[in-house]
């Protein structure tokens, strides 16, 4: 199984309501809320691309984009 490599966290700041679910439930503490209470990905190198933030986001505001050709499915 090829290791998934992260390209970026695409966070829609207009849709994010700053509930903090992604911040609290990320197993690697990659995300944080910034001064305007919007999610931002800070520790990108720790991201394991589990997509738990993406699938639990109630605002559908996060997308974890992975490198092309590195998909393990």
């Amino acid at each position: 199984m090829a290791k998934k490599t992260l390209k970026e966290h695409r966070i829609n700041r207009d849709w994010c309501k700053g509930c903090g679910i992604c911040v609290a439930l990320c197993p690697k503490h990659v995300l944080e809320l910034d001064q305007s209470d919007k999610a931002v990905a800070l520790r990108l190198e720790d991201c394991i691309c589990c997509k738990l933030c993406e699938i639990r986001c109630p605002d559908l505001a996060i997308e974890v984009i992975m490198e092309e050709g590195e998909r393990d499915d």
Binding site: D14, W15, C16, K17, C19, G20, I21, R56, C57, P58
Partner: peptide, 13 residues
């Protein structure tokens, strides 16, 4: 969007 549900509402999930 953004939808009308409150911040952290489970309905969005």
């Amino acid at each position: 969007f953004p939808h009308m549900w409150c911040p952290g509402c489970g309905h969005g999930t």
